[in-house]
Simulated scan of single mutants.
Amino acid sequence: MPNNWKFAAENFAGDGYHNISHRSVDMVGIGPSGLGRRDNAEYKEGRRINVSFPREGHAAVVELFPPETPQVATYQNREDVGEYFRMMESERRRRLDGKTNLLGVVGTLFPNMSYLARQPRSIAVWHPRGPNLTEAWRWFLVDKDTPEEVKDVLRHYYIRYSGPGGMTEQDDMENWNYAHKASRGAIARRKPYNYQMGIGHLANDVELPGVLTEGICEENARGFYSGWVKMMDAPSNGH
């Protein structure tokens, strides 16, 4: 991809306001229930919390639900696949045993490993190939004991969603490429990016580690770059 690797890493760290760029994909309905690119209905009743670890540079986005929140049907195009995920969700909740119901969304482990926590579950590594080029490696995760018919549905879904041929991933790569190109302009180089959104709006009532904010906020990006600055300013080999 013709962009700096930090665009992708920052995006997965908690960029919650770029989703409008996927509007055309949502309208096509590539998700396994035909409701958009993913079955985002399962997040509808959640409380979005951004989790930042500025000392290390890690960041994540999660959704919190009360323990009694009803299950949301996903993978409705195939009854057998839908039943499998209903069973797995019931088991997950049983193991929570009344604890806060937390669903992961996205995150970045500093500096360059990112993940999607729900379907399509994946791990990505953004390899810098110079300041203006990134090589992306992506692994897609399926439980070993998943029935073969479910694996087949997930495989086709992942291909539609991610990778160079994936509709959503093409949108992301286009965003990063344009943002990178715009950042190299004469005026853009004179001015710093503005990362002030959500300063001071902490979610102090949530019992999770890290710096916590709610909703659309740039705290995670600030934390990611705090880790980056700390690494860049660190002495090299004791000098």
Rank of each mutant, 00 (worst) to 15 (best):
G185D: 04
Y178S: 13
E169Y: 05
V206E: 02
R189C: 06
G166Q: 06
I159Y: 13
R184I: 09
H201W: 12
P164H: 03
R184C: 13
G185H: 01
R155E: 10
A182L: 15
S162R: 10
E169H: 02
P164L: 02
Y193I: 13
G198P: 04
D143G: 07
H201Q: 12
G198I: 00
P192G: 07
A188L: 09
D152G: 05
H180L: 02
I187G: 12
N177A: 14
Y158V: 07
Y157R: 09
G166T: 06
K144G: 08
P192Q: 08
E174C: 10
Y157Q: 08
V206N: 03
N177V: 15
H156M: 10
N175D: 05
D205K: 06
W176A: 07
D152F: 03
K181I: 12
D145W: 07
E148Y: 02
I199M: 00
Y161C: 14
H201P: 06
L154H: 10
I187P: 12
D145C: 08
P147N: 01
I159E: 14
S183A: 05
W176E: 03
Y157E: 03
V142C: 07
Y178V: 15
N194R: 07
L208E: 00
E148Q: 09
I159C: 11
E207H: 11
D205E: 09
R160E: 14
E148I: 07
D143Q: 08
A182G: 14
D145S: 05
V206K: 03
A203Q: 03
R189S: 04
P164T: 01
P192D: 06
K191S: 15
P164Q: 00
I187A: 13
L154T: 06
L202R: 04
G166V: 02
G200M: 02
G210T: 00
P192A: 09
Y178A: 13
G185S: 04
N175Y: 03
I159W: 14
W176F: 09
W176R: 08
G185P: 03
E174S: 13
N175M: 06
E207V: 10
R189V: 04
V206G: 00
G163T: 06
R190Y: 11
Y193A: 15
E148C: 04
L202S: 05
Y161Q: 15
G210L: 01
Y178M: 14
Y161W: 14
N175E: 07
H156G: 15
Q170I: 12
R184S: 11
H156F: 08
S183R: 05
E174Q: 10
V150D: 00
P164M: 02
G210W: 04
H180F: 03
S162P: 09
D143H: 11
S183T: 03
P192F: 06
G198M: 00
